[in-house]
């Protein structure tokens, strides 16, 4: 940090901490929308598949359906909330014009990305954790690889925070923003093996499902949680890590250039 800045009383971490604090405060101010609603949705799924249908369906030997579906539901909460926190916050700032409040400040592009990302991860992982706690009423989870569970949840959250930033930057309207959720993320989640094992699908759908990036995340998370998956854990982590790196680089380049943020 240049000495002139220090003389000015500038604390290099403060812009980042303030932006992170503001982003976390933002979703807590509307906690019923941002945290309670996704937990209720996930709880309904848990009730339907855990307490009612769960006992009559078996898709994986040695596990009941609730045990199979819970990892996917947890990760679905992480994905949706990490994505929508970044997407809605940044898009609203662009839409309402108050993004200029940040653009005129010394917040650097890396601080900008990391503050938005961490806030999204806090929300995503918080929702995931609560869904996980609620799921204890419906299924017993073996926690086969606990560190891998945390790692995959964090990596997924990070990845979807980046995708949320990208969606907010590329969207021109609320419609186009919701298209990312409704026509891309939601179908990929549902087709990514939340409710069924991909190996049960007939050819060519089982093969095509391997092109769905969310499949690697869900399968990896389930594998870490219950100890069984369609893919080896290292492959899921490699794909998740690669996608995260690519999305982060993409978002960093756009935000660094001020693409669609600065005129």
């Amino acid at each position: 940090m240049p000495s002139d800045l220090r003389q000015h009383g500038y604390n290099p971490w403060l812009p980042f901490k303030t932006l992170l604090f503001k982003e976390v405060r933002r979703f807590f101010r509307v906690v019923s929308q941002t945290v309670v609603t996704p937990i209720i949705t996930a709880s309904l799924y848990l009730f339907i598949f855990g307490a009612t249908l769960g006992e009559r369906i078996s898709v994986l030997e040695g596990f009941n359906y609730a045990q199979f579906v819970v990892p996917g539901l947890i990760l679905m909460g992480v994905i949706n909330n990490s994505f929508s926190n970044c997407a809605s916050s940044l898009f609203m700032s662009r839409y309402l014009g108050n993004i200029v409040d940040l653009l005129v400040t010394p917040v650097t592009p890396p601080q900008f990305i990391m503050a938005y990302t961490l806030a999204a991860m806090i929300r995503g992982l918080m929702v995931g954790t609560i869904v996980c706690l609620v799921s204890l009423f419906f299924a017993q989870l073996p926690w086969a690889h606990p560190f891998a569970v945390i790692g995959m949840a964090a990596l997924t959250s990070f990845l979807f925070a980046q995708l949320g930033l990208l969606a907010a930057i590329y969207s021109n309207s609320f419609d186009s923003l919701s298209m990312f959720t409704n026509f891309l993320i939601l179908p990929l989640i549902y087709l990514g093996g939340v409710f069924y094992p991909i190996s049960l699908l007939p050819y060519p759908w089982s093969t095509l499902s391997h092109l769905n990036p969310i499949f690697y995340l869900i399968d990896g998370f389930r594998h870490a949680l219950i100890g069984v998956g369609d893919l080896p854990l290292w492959l899921s982590f490699t794909v998740a890590g690669g996608m995260s790196l690519a999305a982060f680089t993409w978002a960093a380049i756009l935000i660094g250039k001020g693409y669609r943020l600065r005129n």
Partner: peptide, 18 residues
Amino acid sequence: FFTIDKALRLHAGYYGVA
């Protein structure tokens, strides 16, 4: 999302000054 008081404090923070 914020009150005047809170927004002013936040804005000082964005500039890296206490």
